[in-house]
Structures are given as structure tokens and as C-alpha cells.
Amino acid sequence: MSIQHFRVALIPFFAAFCLPVFAHPETLVKVKDAEDQLGARVGYIELDLNSGKILESFRPEERFPMMSTFKVLLCGAVLSRVDAGQEQLGRRIHYSQNDLVEYSPVTEKHLTDGMTVRELCSAAITMSDNTAANLLLTTIGGPKELTAFLHNMGDHVTRLDRWEPELNEAIPNDERDTTMPAAMATTLRKLLTGELLTLASRQQLIDWMEADKVAGPLLRSALPAGWFIADKSGAGERGSRGIIAALGPDGKPSRIVVIYTTGSQATMDERNRQIAEIGASLIKHW
């Protein structure tokens, strides 16, 4: 067993022997301040990774656009098919120029040779490549099948209805392509620590998230040296922004954090800054 596999296998073990965790309302004060600064709703939840206990939450059962955070769930569904012998990570998928959609920095470079399922998941999570996500959605049967996968996990809230990039439209009061912070946090925890996926697939999923290259201005910008984070960000229309993450000190994750916002007129930089400040408060009061 590799060191990384050992780390993920012992996530519940280490967490069980940690000192009790206590909620700190100071972080919620910052979440509410972010709402004021952005002029928009902000949803927040913080779960203990081992027990699933909610440590703090704000608007945990209000719907927010998922945006690209759905790509972690998508690759979880792909990995479940791999575990069941219905898919192979090494299978190569070929596609054409007509398949390319807006923001496809990886797939646009491989029109000639195609990409493997493993490479597509890596591109979808680490670079948020939209064509990679659409190609992977095709392998599982489309958005409705991802929703069905989530329902089978016990998540009857999260739903995907459309493809990239239309799913980022974020129309107010439109339930399409949305989740709730509580539902997303619980589902992410199941994917990373539950028995739904094999140990190898859980490790692969967290490795992809740990290698995320496009979430630097968010929670990662607030992390002290030595902290662990595996995350996936999302951005959408109407001032929408979000991030889902597993993080913790001492090089291992111990909490799940989900943050979503929508309806702001603020710039992307300002949305990023507010999420980073929430992260800084979380870490300060850990």
C-alpha cells in the first residue's frame, strides 16, 4: 500500500482519535458579512469528516447552483462504474471539434489522439474542462443518470439537468442544476469515506481534487503551510461562485467545507476574496 493510499485508508482512524471539535460562531459572522459585502445569498456548511456531524452552517438547506462543483460527483459516478466493471479508466475516447464547448483548455489539445477516461476526469476536476465533463456525462448516460446515481446514494436534493455550459445559467428560483450545502457536503463525505467506492477509487477521487489547479484564489489562499486540501470550485452566471473541499491540518483532511453564493453584482475577484476570507476565519478558529 502506498503512503497516499495509507493516508486515505486511515482518515477515519486518525479522526477518531482527534480531540473533540467545537464550532466557532466567528466564522458564521464572516459568512454573514460576506453576504453584506456581496449583496447576495451565501450558503455555508462545515462537517466533521469522521462523524458527519454538522459543526457550523448557514442557509444549509437553500438551493444554490452547483456550477462546476458537480464534476466531482460526476467522476465519482464514473469511478463507481469502474468498480462495477462497467468502465475502464484506460479506455480512450475520441471526439471532434464539434464536441468542444466553451472553456476546454485540455480537451482542445487532444482532438487528434483523444483522451482516456482517467485523463478526462483529471481534466474535468483539476482544470474544470467543460468538454471533458460533457464527454464523461455521455459515458454514464447524461445528466439524468448522474441525478439517479445521487438518488441511489441517498441524495434526493442534488440534481443535474443540463450539460456544460448551460448548467451554469443560475436563474433565480430555478431548481435545475442545483444542490443544497448540506446535501453536497453529505454526498461528498460519502464519496470520500464511505463504502460506495473502493479504496482505490476513493484515493483516485481525492487525488484529482488535491491536484486542483484553478481554485488557488479561494480556500487555498488562506491555508497555512502543512495543511491538506482537496477541492473543486465552480463559477456561473449572475454572480455565482462555489467551492467544495476536504481539508485539515497535519497533512490530512478532517472536515468537509461547502460554500456557495449566487445573485451578486460583485466582480469575480471580490467573490473570490470573500470566500478566501471565510476560509481564513475557519482556519483561525479551527
Rank of each mutant, 00 (worst) to 15 (best):
N50E: 14
E35R: 03
E270R: 11
L10I: 12
D212Y: 03
G251R: 11
G239H: 04
M115V: 06
G90R: 10
G114P: 03
E26K: 13
G76E: 01
I206K: 12
R91Q: 07
D129A: 00
P65F: 03
G76V: 05
I140L: 10
P217W: 05
P253L: 10
S96C: 10
M115A: 06
Q86R: 12
D83V: 03
H110D: 05
L137Q: 05
T178G: 03
R189G: 12
D174R: 03
E56K: 11
I278R: 00
D83M: 03
K232V: 00
T116V: 06
K232S: 00
A276P: 01
P105S: 05
A132R: 00
A280N: 13
G248L: 00
T261W: 04
T193R: 15
S201K: 07
K190H: 13
A230T: 02
R238F: 14
L146A: 06
E119W: 02
G43I: 00
W208H: 03
S2V: 08
D250S: 14
P105Y: 05
T186V: 14
T178A: 05
V78M: 09
K53A: 14
G52Y: 05
I93F: 06
W208M: 08
P172W: 09
A211L: 13
K284M: 10
G279M: 04
D129Y: 00
E166V: 12
L223R: 05
G263E: 06
F22Y: 10
A182S: 12
I140R: 02
L10Q: 06
I45K: 01
P20G: 06
E145A: 14
N98G: 10
G226L: 05
E119R: 05
I171C: 14
L74E: 04
S281N: 12
P105K: 06
L218F: 04
S233V: 02
P143R: 03
R59D: 02
S233K: 01
C121L: 05
I278W: 02
R92Y: 10
S240T: 07
L197G: 04
K30E: 07
I259E: 00
A230S: 06
H151Y: 14
E26D: 09
E102V: 11
P60V: 12
L247D: 00
E145I: 10
A77Y: 12
N50A: 12
V72S: 06
H156F: 11
L167H: 03
W227T: 02
Q4P: 09
T126W: 04
A148Q: 14
R271Q: 10
Q88R: 12
K284D: 14
E87K: 02
A148Y: 13
H151A: 14
D36F: 15
W163V: 13
L188D: 00
R118T: 14
L247Y: 03
D174T: 05
G76W: 05
A215F: 03
D33A: 15
D177P: 01
G234P: 00
D48T: 05
A182I: 15
M180W: 11
Q37Y: 15
K32T: 09
A148E: 15
L111D: 07
D129T: 00
E61P: 01
T147E: 09
F14S: 08
H110W: 08
R91T: 08
Q88N: 13
I54T: 11
T261R: 03
K232G: 00
L100W: 05
S68Q: 00
L74K: 02
P60I: 12
E26T: 13
G154K: 07
E195S: 14
G141R: 06
L38N: 06
I275P: 00
F14G: 07
L47G: 03
V117C: 04
P143Q: 06
F149Q: 07
K252C: 12
Q203Y: 09
P143K: 03
E145W: 09
R202M: 06
F13E: 02
M115W: 02
S57T: 11
F149A: 08
G248C: 02
G154T: 05
L100A: 04
E56I: 05
R81E: 07
F70N: 05
C75N: 02
D161Y: 04
S68P: 00
P65E: 02
P143I: 05
Y95K: 01
L120I: 06
L219F: 09
A133P: 02
F149T: 08
L10W: 07
C121Y: 00
V101L: 08
P249Y: 05
S122C: 08
L47C: 09
G236W: 01
P253A: 13
P249W: 04
F6A: 07
W163R: 10
R241H: 04
E195T: 12
G242S: 07
E108S: 12
T262G: 05
L223H: 03
K213N: 11
F14Q: 03
V214E: 05
T261Y: 06
G142H: 04
D113H: 11
Q37T: 12
A215N: 05
A148R: 14
G43V: 00
L146K: 00
E56R: 09
C75A: 12
G236Q: 02
I275H: 01
Q204V: 11
F58I: 08
D161G: 03
A225T: 15
I243H: 02
R159H: 12
R241K: 06
H5A: 09
L219W: 04
I275Q: 01
A246S: 09
I54K: 07
I229A: 05
T126G: 11
R241D: 02
G52A: 07
R220Y: 02
S104C: 07
R41Y: 11
N168I: 05
D161W: 02
I140P: 00
E119I: 01
A124L: 03
T116R: 06
G141F: 04
F64L: 02
L146G: 03
K30D: 05
D177S: 02
G141C: 05
L19Y: 15
T261D: 01
E26V: 10
A77S: 10
D48E: 12
G239A: 04
G216W: 08
T139M: 10
F149P: 01
